[in-house]
């Protein structure tokens, strides 16, 4: 026996891999994708397809131009495409979707050095760009009947009008593609928790702190929880591994402060919705959170804070 393989230990590894995690998140998104297509039909489907296609192509071109290995097979660009699409209103013109996708991958991900190096959640970078560039198109909503209507959060903010909880759970309300159905999001979120692809600390603290803040402010906490992009953000955006803290304490901090930010923006800010900004803001401070939340080491008292 001469050709024995000699490498250093450990000689076994866990079955999870980066592509498997990306696939797992895609599987978790299936109920949300399905229900968005059910409610918004061709509009949803075409936004999803354009967003995915442009994200993957952008990644490919960036890496080609920079003469880097092409990594579109790892599934991360596709995932960004889906997540971006799910945060967009169903009436958004497709060319704007494409612009958002180019920004998400180009500015949000590749400009930082690609997978693992980006500071901000790429899909939310794309959405933020669209929000600032095309504010009107990004806030034009239709109901599931295709007739223009405001989102539940808009109705609340502008007219003080509440929406039926059951409608919010099922999703037959106005809103972005993937944010309307609480039940579909929870289904996906539970799958992610079960597969250990997200850390429960973030959704729990993110939703929990927002709910508590809303209650203290004397507002409707159930409405807070079910409306807008809160659940989608809590399970699919605030849990993005790359852009959130690596320490357990840090995850508590990220979620807690993020949740309070959502509530503050919704209750007192100019925008009806605050999920996107809360997560982007927390992404920005994640390196600082990491620095100050080092785990306690074995065999010594906590050092340098």
């Amino acid at each position: 026996m001469d050709n024995l393989i000699v490498t250093s230990s450990p000689h076994i590894s866990h079955h999870d891999s980066v592509p498997k995690i990306m696939q797992g998140v895609m599987i978790a998104l299936i109920p949300i994708i399905a229900i968005s297509i059910y409610f918004f039909k061709m509009r949803a489907l075409s936004i999803l397809l354009v967003s995915i296609f442009v994200c993957v192509i952008t990644e490919y071109l960036f890496q080609k131009i920079r003469k880097q290995p092409i990594t579109i097979n790892d599934g991360s660009a596709m995932l960004t495409g889906v997540l971006l699409a799910l945060t967009l209103p169903p009436t958004l013109p497709l060319w704007m979707v494409a612009v958002g996708a180019v920004i998400a991958i180009g500015l949000g991900k590749q400009a930082f050095g690609g997978l693992g190096s980006n500071v901000f959640n790429p899909a939310l970078v794309g959405r933020a760009f669209l929000m600032i560039s095309f504010p009107v198109a990004m806030t034009s909503w239709i109901g599931v009947d295709g007739v223009s209507s405001a989102t539940p959060l808009n109705l609340m903010k502008m007219q003080g009008q509440t929406t039926d909880y059951l409608k919010l759970v099922l999703g037959n309300v106005g809103g972005s593609l993937g944010e309307t159905s609480a039940i579909a999001i929870l289904l996906g979120g539970l799958y992610l928790l079960y597969k250990n692809y997200i850390d429960w600390r973030i959704p729990l603290s993110y939703l929990g702190s927002g709910v508590i803040f809303t209650l203290v402010a004397g507002q409707d906490a159930i409405f807070f929880l079910l409306s807008g992009g809160l659940l989608l953000g809590a399970f699919f955006m605030a849990t993005d591994m790359v852009t959130t803290p690596i320490t357990r304490t840090g995850k508590w901090v990220f979620g807690t402060v993020g949740g309070i930010l959502v509530a503050i923006i919704r209750l007192y800010g100019g925008y009806p919705e605050g999920v996107m900004f809360s997560i982007l803001l927390m992404n920005a401070v994640t390196p600082i959170i990491n620095r100050y939340t080092n785990p306690t080491m074995y065999g010594r008292v906590k050092t340098n804070g």
Binding site: I21, M241, T244, I246, R248, P295
Partner: peptide
């Protein structure tokens, strides 16, 4: 090997 995605499983 893929780039680190900061999943923090090694930390845990």
């Amino acid at each position: 090997p893929y780039p680190c995605i900061k999943c923090a499983r090694c930390v845990d």
